[in-house]
Design a protein around this nucleic acid. Structure first.
Lengths: 101, 101
DNA sequence: GCCATGCGTAAGTATTGACTTACTTAAGGC
DNA sequence: GCCTTAAGTAAGTCAATACTTACGCATGGC
């Protein structure tokens, strides 16, 4: 559930493709697999990683499992890069001041 | 230079560690390698990936090469997740309205 | 010119992990 | 109770890649 786990989860292209498909809304596993060049079990495995990383959530509806984006996880990543950006800026300012001196 | 390339670059833990070290400010390759459990050439290889992805920039100073965060690249990732979050929210709203009806 | 320093590059290895097929489990319709 | 549908699990394979050591290349001081 750390951002490290989240970033690692979003590395592989196929897993990122699944993640981005969910951007359009919740979906069942089978429907996700239809639009991808990999088997359904592969999609299941990727979804497990995304779920463990806190990027998607699972809901059961009959025999289907509906996956959706975990908005908290996504916003956590946004915040992570937000803070990064500030830090980088201050570091740059410091290094500029240092080279000026 | 796409966000896909950037996310893929930040997947491996060691590469992410390098990236986060640069958060504290610019650094030479050797100094980066000192604080990491891998060899200096390994750090060089990771830096090349990060540079190709548009996440770090390189500057030469004498025989040293100073690497710094590419603020544009980092803010691009932040924007990426920002947009994602909005889309997810609207998708959720749509699906909620659908299940209400 | 020569040596030292700091890095990138090449080549080879070994581990990781993304994928497959086959099987098991769970839920719903008849 | 049985069949169908949907999805997770297990086991095995193969390719990608994160490392290593050895080497080559540029820059700067003497």
């Amino acid at each position: 559930m750390t951002y490290g786990e989240k970033l690692e989860a979003l590395g592989p292209p196929t897993r990122r493709a699944i993640f981005e498909k969910l951007r359009e809304g919740p979906s069942s596993v089978g429907r996700l697999a239809e639009g991808l060049p990999v088997s359904r079990p592969a999609v299941s495995q990727h979804l497990k990683v995304l779920k463990d990383a806190g990027l998607v959530v699972e809901a059961r509806r009959g025999t289907e499992r509906i996956y959706s984006l975990d908005t908290e996880g996504v916003s956590a990543l946004r915040d992570y890069f937000d803070g990064f950006w500030d830090d980088a800026l201050s570091a740059y300012k410091r290094s500029l001041e240092a080279s000026d001196a």
